[in-house]
Simulated assay, not measured.
Amino acid sequence: MSTGTADGEMSPRIEVTETAADEALSLLEGEGLDTDEAGLRLFVQQGGCAGLSYGMRFDDEPEPDDTIYEHHDLRVFVDPSSLNYVEGSVLDFEGGLQGAGFHVENPNVVSECGCGESFRT
């Protein structure tokens, strides 16, 4: 397991905005999870019209081969195969008339489907 921090322990490959961290921490606490151990898992899976899509869920603890990023007290777990697709990304939370949700700003994306739910690198 490797760890990246905003403090420079290792160059962060995943950034998290303060807004996204606050929202995720609030949801984690609402689920009764210990925010010192639990975290948000960011992963990439096959699917969507462009071929790949993002997935997120809360996990009680990281897997042994995960890379762990900590930003604004939020722990983010990324498995090795997903890291290849999301390296350099920023996780944000957006609210608005179209609905609120987490959004991944990924510099590796070369195209997205029309609805924005899937991507290709």
Rank of each mutant, 00 (worst) to 15 (best):
S82A: 09
F43G: 13
P80N: 00
S53M: 09
E37Q: 15
P64N: 01
G88E: 05
Y69A: 06
A24H: 12
E117R: 13
I68H: 07
L74H: 11
F93Q: 02
R120D: 13
S26F: 04
E70A: 05
T3Y: 12
N84F: 11
G99Y: 12
A100M: 07
V110D: 07
G39H: 14
F102E: 07
F93H: 12
D66S: 01
H72F: 10
H103K: 15
M1V: 01
E63V: 00
G116L: 02
Q46C: 03
E37C: 10
S82R: 06
L25Q: 14
D73V: 04
A21L: 10
H103N: 11
V90N: 01
G116R: 06
P64K: 00
T19M: 10
S26E: 15
R75I: 02
G101E: 10
L83M: 13
E70W: 10
V109K: 02
G88Y: 09
V86N: 00
H72S: 05
A38V: 11
L33V: 09
V44C: 12
S2W: 09
V86D: 00
E9D: 15
E15L: 15
Q46N: 06
L74V: 06
L42Y: 08
A50Y: 00
L91M: 13
C49A: 14
S89W: 05
L83N: 07
G4Y: 15
H71A: 09
S118P: 00
E29V: 07
L97Q: 07
E87G: 02
M1G: 04
G39C: 12
G96R: 01
G8E: 03
S53T: 10
A100W: 03
A24E: 13
Y54V: 06
D7P: 02
V110P: 01
M10V: 09
E31S: 02
V76F: 03
I68A: 01
E29M: 07
Y85T: 01
L91N: 07
Q98C: 09
V104N: 13
T67F: 08
T5H: 08
P12T: 01
G101R: 13
S118W: 00
V44E: 11
E117L: 14
L83C: 03
P12W: 05
V78A: 02
P64F: 01
E31H: 05
E18P: 03
R75S: 08
S53R: 06
A38Y: 15
V44N: 05
G48R: 14
C115K: 06
G48H: 12
C115I: 13
G51F: 15
N106T: 08
T19C: 05
E117I: 10
L28D: 08
D79V: 04
D60I: 11
Y69C: 03
T3D: 10
D65S: 01
V104K: 05
E105C: 05
G47S: 09
E23F: 04
G88V: 00
V90G: 00
S89H: 08
E70C: 04
L97R: 07
F93V: 04
G114F: 10
D66V: 00
E29Y: 08
G95R: 14
L40T: 09
E9K: 14
V109R: 03
E63I: 01
G99F: 12
F102L: 09
R57M: 11
V16A: 07
L42N: 04
V110R: 13
T19G: 08
